[in-house]
Design a protein around this nucleic acid. Structure first.
Length: 264
DNA sequence: ATGGCCAATATGATTGGA
């Protein structure tokens, strides 16, 4: 069972890349972020034709998330609880099941939070607090659960090429990282980091300033596994070559494989 | 030379991203 997350930076601009990547890597479940379209504008037919069920939580212009699954969804729930007036489309939970049991996946697009002196940073921190409460609630189910998406969080200095330049950034401030660590302390495993302690496992390279050419990247897209999911973790990967294609997203897919037939 | 991009919008400049 391969579960992938990818911030595509407009699903319409990236549809050819997405379809090619689905065909090449055959993920079972995909979490997409920044689809940047309303539900009706999502290229549902093309993705269904590739063999996927589609669930979309979109909005006009910005944000927007979607879940793709080879197996049908038992349930799909948009929105992160805890702040009813929050109208950003940043969270979508889906449940799929098979003879091997149930798997719950949350697709999330955590707010960037910059500039930090604006309301955007408190919004990010509140959103992280809500995510922690949601995760704590779901842990009680004792299910395999994957919280996958663009976290806009640099967990450690190993996750950025030049950490000193990011010390005052919303992605790397202590209050941001503390909340990521609080999520982990609940019992979640950072799947990619559990598989490797390499310092250049980047998932994002800015379009500007030749960041890709200089490999000045960030590791900000994460798959966090509940204990029941972590017990089944087989391997992880980052599809770095996607960043070198024509007209790429600034993020690349990150993924993990779970052995749902038994504990690894 | 210390900057360099990209996507969406009733667009031709502005906003958001990270």
């Amino acid at each position: 069972m391969r579960i992938a997350t990818w911030n595509v930076n407009s699903v319409k601009q990236r549809l050819d890349h997405l379809l090619g990547w689905l065909d090449e890597t055959k993920p079972d479940i995909v979490c997409l972020q920044e689809i940047k379209c309303v539900d009706d504008a999502f290229p549902r037919e093309a993705i269904e034709a590739a063999g996927y069920n589609v669930a979309v939580h979109g909005q006009k212009t910005f944000n927007g998330v979607a879940l793709l699954s080879r197996r049908p969804f038992d349930e799909v729930t948009p929105g992160l609880p805890g702040e009813p007036e929050d109208d950003h489309a940043r969270f979508l939970e889906g449940v799929v099941s098979s003879a091997d049991g149930v798997l719950r996946v949350a697709c999330l697009y955590l707010p960037n939070g910059n500039p930090v002196e604006t309301p955007k940073y408190p919004y990010k921190l509140r959103w992280m607090d809500r995510l922690i409460r949601y995760a704590e609630d779901r842990l009680a189910l004792e299910e395999p659960l994957v919280l996958a998406g663009d976290y806009n969080v640099l967990p450690t200095p190993d996750d950025v090429a030049n950490p000193e330049a990011w010390s005052n950034d919303a992605l790397f401030l202590p209050q941001t990282r503390e909340r990521f660590f609080a999520l982990r302390a609940l019992g979640f495993t950072d799947a990619v980091r559990a598989s490797s302690d390499r310092a250049d496992l980047y998932t994002f390279w800015d379009y500007q300033a030749g960041c890709w050419q200089k490999n000045m990247g960030l590791r900000i897209d994460h798959l966090m596994l509940s204990p029941q999911a972590a017990d089944r973790l087989v391997r992880t990967g980052i599809d770095k070559p996607m960043r070198g294609r024509e007209k790429p997203s600034d993020h690349v897919p990150a993924w993990c494989e779970l052995d749902m037939q038994g504990k690894a």
